[in-house]
Design a protein around this nucleic acid. Sequence first.
DNA 1: GACACAAGCGGACTATCGGTCCGCATCGTA
DNA 2: TACGATGCGGACCGATAGTCCGCTTGTGTC
Lengths: 191, 191
Amino acid sequence: MTVRRERADAARNREAVLAAADALFARSERPRGISMDDVAAAAGVGKGTLFRRFGDRTGLIRALAEARIEPLRQAVEAGPPPLGPGAAPRERALALLDAVLEFKLANRHLTLALEDAGGASPYQAGHYVGWHATLCDVLRELPDVPDADYAAHVLLAATRADLVEHLVTVEGLTGEEVRRRLAGFAAAVLG
Amino acid sequence: MTVRRERADAARNREAVLAAADALFARSERPRGISMDDVAAAAGVGKGTLFRRFGDRTGLIRALAEARIEPLRQAVEAGPPPLGPGAAPRERALALLDAVLEFKLANRHLTLALEDAGGASPYQAGHYVGWHATLCDVLRELPDVPDADYAAHVLLAATRADLVEHLVTVEGLTGEEVRRRLAGFAAAVLG
DNA sequence: GACACAAGCGGACTATCGGTCCGCATCGTA
DNA sequence: TACGATGCGGACCGATAGTCCGCTTGTGTC
């Protein structure tokens, strides 16, 4: 069983595509406005390369998001409290929600593209399932929250990309204000 | 100023299109899978007729939804309590949320199509703005809810079509169970 | 270094879909 | 019946996701 190493040019192209797509999505207001041709051209590769590597448009966006989310996932799974394990339930729940919101604020366009992606339910994406699971676990330890599963869904729904986008661009809030509001709301829910 | 009456054939076609689209969206699991050609064919009209009447795909879906939502809007604006004006704030808020959720449950595929529609933010749609405004007004009268504007957004986010869809099809809840959960959560938030 | 073969590349090509356009049919009216 | 306005329909267009296959390039072997 020899491990097939990735060819050097393939690795180079993968990086080029991810970097180009990242820049493109970060710059654009409307995710749907960026075509796969755009990404291929910006990365200086052929379209075939894109699709062989990432399967389809959704796959590309997911790969992009997954790379960005990874540090957060690590921090939640094995980082120091209050985000990592070991913190008091209430503090950890608040820290998780704030971290998720902060991530979405920092990557607005990308998360918008991700939650928009191709009609696939955002509720089945790996990162969402992970966040929901840990939030559930934590909420179950709080006596004031009767229905942890549902409460976790709703609290995470408060961080949805298009809601955040609306609060920032239409209602004119700053990122900090949105974070304060979520913190206040969540604190009330957690009792 | 003579009022230009709608021509008889135009009215007939409009009804045919709405009925056909309604049936098509109700039947299909994935809104994106239904093309304008499908609707035109099912209604027995040409594509041009569709677009002249409704502008674009989003316009058609909105027209469809608007017709369905109208009774709910009426009931909220001028119906009897607890949904209509005059009820105690807490009861009215709970009634509104339940009514919205019930609507989305009864029109799952249509609301899914609506919130998906063409990259347009669901937060700027007329019905959402209306629901949010009344919910805000009502919440402001409750001392236990500090940030009415944001709380209204989050509570309405708890009724989002794709979340409801996920709870029903993936987590296997019944509509009644979802309603109970929302009611429990909202009751806790309202104090 | 030369060779052979697998892995990867790229961009022309296809299918589909939203949306437009315009010659023709139909309606309402005098 | 005749006529102008309104509406119809489907051929057509441009864009875009995704496929395909002949060619190139990297890599392990002698």
